[in-house]
Simulated assay, not measured.
Amino acid sequence: MFVVGGESLIDLVPVSSAADAERVALAGGSPFNCAIALSKLGHETGFLCPISADQYGDLLLKPLAEAGVAVLLDERVDAPTTKAIVTFNDKMQASYVFERGADRAFTREGLIAALPRQVALYQIGGFCPILETDADVWRAVVSEAAARGATISIDINVREKLVDDEAGYRARLSDFLDMAHIVKLSEEDHEWLVPGQSIEAYAAELLKRPHCALVVVTLGEQGSRAFSRAGKGEAPIYAPPVFGDTVGAGDSLMAGILTWLSEADALGPDALAALNDEQLSAMLGFGAVVAGINCGRKGCQPPTRDEVDAVLAQ
């Protein structure tokens, strides 16, 4: 099973970029989105996050069930659902303000008990390093997943507005990066983490960490790049016929990359490290189609595998 651990939340999304635009409530959260995308692409997927007993919790459970994602923590919690207030710039690119709640209502024992016996892939959520008490618990979960044979991936997904202790956050993030075989980040993450450093130089630094064998960097409208210990690749975006917004684009791309790696029998550390230029570009191209189809819709609505195959066949 593929397991994604981390936050779920409700995105309160404006219907336009106008300051006074009406907002609609949509299920979201980067790990939540990635879990749904993985399942719709054909993987047995489990989601590891507490779900609130409130009405927004009901809203979160519906798309998980529709996508066939296993909710690994089946007992709902009293804490209110975490919320993200979304705004768009003139290019309809999203930014967020957060009100946290149920995504933190966990215990170390409860999370570890909910892990499946066999975990092929464990994806670390972006909120996990933000608070020290949370990070201590999630590190234990990641360690247990690795002990059960999982390849570990992380989507860094810096949420600067939630970071009150930058030095502490950087140290905790570094701990998670030391555990990961696959690291994904956006160019915005890169600029916040290492301003002034080239993407190539930072990727090389990441690849020197104990387990890292693949680095993926998304570049917005400029596509994406990838680096292994044996090669590097790049791919443009896939532009859908009608553009919706970018909510969940990175999460969909991540799911696409993990799907390509799984189907290429390249999820193991040695295989990841050996990916060559051609393979890396093919991997990114597949992920770009998954992300692009999602961008043709409003909010995060990842495609099914049939939808992806239909575009690839064109």
Rank of each mutant, 00 (worst) to 15 (best):
G126I: 01
Q118T: 09
A53T: 13
G110P: 00
W138N: 05
R117E: 14
A37V: 01
S52M: 10
S39I: 07
F106Y: 08
V142R: 05
E132P: 05
S39P: 06
G57T: 11
L72S: 08
I85N: 09
T151M: 14
I112M: 04
G68Y: 12
R148T: 09
A94G: 01
G101M: 00
E99R: 05
A94L: 02
V77W: 09
F98P: 01
S52W: 08
E144H: 09
P63E: 12
Q123L: 14
L41K: 04
G110Q: 03
V142Y: 04
R104S: 02
D103E: 05
T81P: 09
T81M: 09
P63Q: 12
S39Y: 07
V69W: 10
L64K: 12
K83D: 03
V86N: 10
Q93R: 05
L131K: 13
Q93Y: 02
A102W: 00
A37G: 02
G46T: 07
A84M: 07
V77T: 14
N33G: 06
D134S: 15
R117N: 14
V141C: 06
E66H: 11
A94T: 03
F47C: 07
A114N: 01
E99F: 13
I152N: 02
I85L: 14
R100H: 03
S153I: 11
N33H: 06
G46W: 08
D58R: 13
Q55L: 14
E109S: 09
P80V: 13
F47N: 07
Q123H: 15
A105D: 13
I124D: 00
L121T: 07
L60C: 11
R104V: 00
Q93K: 07
P129Y: 03
V142W: 01
T133R: 15
L38G: 06
V137K: 03
Y96C: 04
R100G: 02
E109G: 05
A145F: 04
P80M: 12
K62E: 15
D74L: 08
D90R: 11
R108T: 03
P63C: 10
L64G: 08
G46A: 06
Q123I: 08
A113L: 02
L48C: 10
E99A: 11
I152E: 03
P116K: 10
D134Y: 08
L48S: 11
A84P: 06
I51Y: 02
T133N: 14
E75P: 01
E132L: 13
K62Y: 09
A84W: 04
A146L: 12
M92Q: 05
R117D: 15
A147S: 15
E66F: 09
D74M: 12
A145W: 04
G46D: 03
V119Q: 00
N33S: 08
I152C: 09
A113D: 05
E132M: 09
I85V: 12
T45N: 10
T107P: 01
P80E: 13
L111S: 00
L48K: 11
E66V: 10
L64R: 11
K40P: 04
H43K: 09
A140R: 10
Y96M: 03
F127K: 01
A150V: 07
R108H: 02
K40N: 04
R139L: 15
L73E: 11
T151K: 08
Y96G: 04
A120H: 07
R148M: 06
A65D: 13
D136N: 13
A140H: 09
A35L: 02
A135S: 15
I154G: 12
F47K: 06
Y122P: 03
A114K: 01
A145E: 03
W138H: 15
R76F: 13
